[in-house]
Write a protein that binds this DNA or RNA. Structure first.
Lengths: 230, 230
DNA sequence: CTTCGCAATTGGTCAAACCAGTTTGGCCGC
DNA sequence: GCGGCCAAACTGGTTTGACCAATTGCGAAG
């Protein structure tokens, strides 16, 4: 009553089978699929296992489970991706250059003394951490997140946080510790200062250019460090 | 032997409790946490339920389950967020206004005939679907994703796709179908056309303004529809 | 001291219940 | 005849207990 080969975990296989079965039976997005008991029997697994598969699919947002009612196929098509990683650090830097310069511009447009105070705090923190790269990475992120939150838009704040979460991933961290040091952090600190000043002056164009300059320089430092290392 | 209150699903609560317990006991990233049986007993739930929580955490990438060995805490720090939702549709529109205008500007800077062709295709598709709101929502997203992919940066493309995945969520969809119709789609189509023209002319400033105008108008239509409905 | 193997530990899965919301259809009253 | 109400039939939610399979580590044999 159980399957033969098992390269992946059962709940993973079952999850895929459920999606296949749904499309095979012409069950479109939003439609209800068979009950847990029926599905378990059709796929030849126990209900707890079937349930694990459903929970995995629910976490991924591919199905919606309504208690007492049934399991419904998610609204979004199967090719939907959930994260923005998978790309190289350089590509992320390029994307940030485009996005964050626009964010800085908007933040300068809504400049407040409170925001400037927070940015100053970030600057002094980073200034005291130029010799501690792991800490500096975090504080660097705090500055950019502070700028984004300065727009007053929580979505932009979350988005920037997500981008920085990428940076804390193991692969990125390895790169960083190799080519980042007190010198690069001091340069970054100066560039941050320029951004801070532009926002303090409520000068959107200057803030935009300062952020663009900062991230362009970051790209340059990154590629240089990469070449240096190879 | 079971808990009293149950606002959310049990596996969700247990998942949170596991993370809390891990930090409380000083279990750092990469370290092993107690066995399933122990955890189930400590948290006062059955092993299948505990297991559902673990699978949810595994899908989210917060723990790693090694068969026969144990469950290990994920490498990334606990504050990492995975999505940018939780905010209202209007806030997402505002964020898009800032981000996508910068993306359109960059796309115009790298304008290619191929991109213009793709945009034209999106326009004709949307023009033929003004009476089919669900389809129009999808095609509208395709246009914006096409613009983002025009930057040649995959991160920006993925990011835009993610933003549109939000739009296909049930809550947003309900709003959309209420206040969107042939009239609003025709207006959006015209605004899309302006963006297309600016990109075809390789005019970054015009592309930026066209995109900003489009999303500002979208916000206006959204708030109007919302008022109308209440 | 090294090495091989077995046994304890851990995750993986299943079976059969019972509990708790939802839905639905039929019955009763209007 | 029509509409609202209530209960039975779903549906997901959770537990218990058992057994299988992969891993690991310790101890005995060389």
């Amino acid at each position: 009553m159980l399957n033969d080969a098992r390269p992946r975990r059962l709940y993973r296989q079952v999850a895929d089978q459920i999606l296949e079965l749904a499309t095979a039976q012409g069950i479109g997005p939003g439609a209800r699929l068979p009950s847990e008991r029926d599905l378990a029997e059709q796929l030849g697994v126990s209900r707890p296992s079937l349930r694990e598969a459903l929970i995995a699919l629910e976490v991924e947002g591919r199905v919606e489970i309504r208690m007492g009612s049934g399991v419904y196929l998610g609204a979004r098509p199967p090719e939907t991706r959930a994260d923005l990683d998978g790309e190289g650090p350089l590509e992320i830097l390029q994307a940030r250059c485009i996005i964050e310069s626009a964010i800085a511009e908007e933040a300068a447009r809504q400049s407040t003394p409170l925001l400037v105070t927070r940015l100053d705090q970030c600057l002094t923190d980073l200034g005291a951490a130029v010799h501690d790269t792991p800490l500096a990475i975090r504080l660097d992120g705090d500055f950019h997140i502070a700028v984004a939150s300065g727009t007053g838009n929580a979505v932009l704040g979350n988005l920037t946080e997500n981008i920085y979460a990428q940076r804390l991933s193991p692969i990125f961290a390895q790169f960083s510790t190799h080519f980042e040091g007190p010198r690069t952090w001091r340069l970054a600190l100066a560039e941050h200062g320029a951004i801070r000043d532009a926002i303090a002056d409520a000068d959107p164009a200057a803030a935009r250019e300062a952020m663009r300059h900062h991230l362009t320089e970051s790209q340059r430092r990154f590629t240089e460090g990469r070449l240096f290392e190879r």
